[in-house]
């Protein structure tokens, strides 16, 4: 039992270190205009993307109704991410990062 648990902890550590090392990858930022109603929609959007490949950061902003997603270009694409959000019934209209910065105060 003891050995099993130690092996388990070792695996957990290794996978964390492995993940941390990959952080030097190509990141891209996608910004969307959306149609969220409330804090709970924000949570839904976050959970939609939480375990998607390559996604590193999700920032939702209700007042401006925008979503910012930072992801690894080699693992995911702007189109695929938009599709996931739209599939749940929210709008995901691509906007430029400059425009996003203007909208989110």
């Amino acid at each position: 039992m003891k050995q099993l648990i130690y092996v388990f902890i070792l695996m957990l550590t290794v996978s964390f270190v492995a993940q941390a090392e990959k952080n030097g990858s190509k990141t891209k930022t996608a910004c969307f205009k959306s149609s969220m109603h409330c804090a709970s929609c924000e949570k839904t959007v976050f959970e939609l993307l939480q375990f998607e490949k390559g996604v590193k950061e999700v920032k939702t902003d209700l007042p401006s109704n925008t979503i910012k997603v930072v992801f690894d270009e080699r693992k995911n694409s702007q189109e695929a991410i938009a599709k996931i959000i739209e599939k749940k019934g929210y709008k995901a209209e691509v906007i430029a990062e400059e425009e996003y910065k203007k909208m989110v105060k």
Binding site: F16, Q50, F51
Partner: peptide, 12 residues
């Protein structure tokens, strides 16, 4: 330490 996946999580 806890690692989350979509439907499950592991902890040690």
């Amino acid at each position: 330490v806890t690692r989350f996946f979509r439907h499950w999580n592991i902890y040690a």
